[in-house]
């Protein structure tokens, strides 16, 4: 066959068409893989865990011989994790909200400074939680403190703080500048603008930020590994050690006894459901409160 220009063009056209189909199917395949993996993870966690889940597991603390497969439940870990996550989220919110507001009111004119702060927060977000845990533990040793709920709250609070600030900051950033201008021109101070106007306007965003941080706080194991300790009792004060769900899963999974292992799977189901609920709640809340904000 003689190769003419027409032939080359036709060849190239076929080749391009082939390329298009080939890569297009690869792309669709990749997206499918991602959704598929998520479904696979949730399915396999549920499949191994739900048979082991029982009412006693959720309502009892470990009894004697619990770690050899005897009776009891993981209530200590569920309550402990709830305390820890609520405390840490509260701590991070009480520091994070003012800082985020500060960045979006006082520092409004200093774009460069705000960008540097954002950059550093993003950097901090990337710091692995094990480093927070290790430093927290080191400081506790230096001060002669024992593992406690309070130490865990502080370390986890520090760990989720950058996430909290950045999430609230992103919400505040989207508030219309007309709102800021209007309230300043009416004579409000910057803190009134921040706490009374912007915080209300961006309430859905703040809720999302809180739930996002809560999810991080309840799921993180590396930062509480050395700081909260582990106990079979439900803590009654901040100075007591406490069990957490991730660690409860982690410890029980390493056991060779099948009953204990099954309990780890069941605890994993509990944690997954909490995370899924948080995710759904944040969507519902942010949609519900959206209609109260002022639109321009």
């Amino acid at each position: 066959m003689r190769i003419s220009t027409g032939n080359i063009f036709r060849l190239r056209k076929t080749w391009w068409r082939f390329e298009e189909t080939f890569f297009r199917s690869l792309m669709i395949f990749s997206s499918m893989v991602i959704v598929g993996v998520l479904l696979l993870i949730i399915f396999s966690i549920m499949k191994t865990g739900i048979p082991a889940l029982s009412f006693e597991m959720l309502t009892q603390t470990p009894k004697g011989g619990f770690y050899f497969g005897k009776e009891g439940g993981i209530l200590n870990a569920i309550v402990g994790s709830a305390y820890l996550a609520v405390g840490a989220t509260g701590l991070a919110l009480s520091i994070g909200l003012p800082v985020a507001i500060f960045m979006n009111t006082w520092l409004l004119k200093h774009k460069k400074t705000v960008n540097i702060i954002r950059f550093i927060l993003d950097l901090l977000w990337g710091v692995p939680s094990i480093i927070y845990g290790a430093i927290g533990f080191m400081i506790m040793i230096m001060l002669g403190l024992k593992t406690s709920l309070l130490a865990g709250i502080i370390v986890v609070g520090m760990f989720i703080l950058p996430i909290m600030i950045r999430a609230i900051d992103e919400a505040l950033k989207t508030s219309p500048s007309g709102l800021t201008e209007a309230s300043l021109s009416l004579g409000s101070t910057k803190s009134e603008l921040g706490f009374k106007v912007l915080a209300k306007q961006c309430f859905p965003g703040i809720i999302t930020a809180v739930l996002l941080s809560f999810g991080r706080a309840i799921g993180d194991a590396a930062s509480v590994l050395f700081t909260t300790g582990f106990t079979d009792n439900i803590p009654t004060s901040l100075t007591q050690p406490t069990a957490t769900l991730p660690l409860s899963i982690f410890f029980q999974l390493t056991s060779p006894i099948p009953e204990v292992k099954n309990r780890a799977y069941a605890a994993a189901v509990v944690l997954t459901i909490i995370i899924l609920l948080t995710s759904i709640l944040s969507r519902v809340f942010s949609n519900r409160y959206k209609k109260h904000s002022i639109k321009f």
Partner: peptide, 12 residues
């Protein structure tokens, strides 16, 4: 959701 799943669940 994938981003929110705790690392211990991925471990399990």
């Amino acid at each position: 959701i994938l981003a929110g799943i705790p690392s211990v669940i991925y471990g399990v």
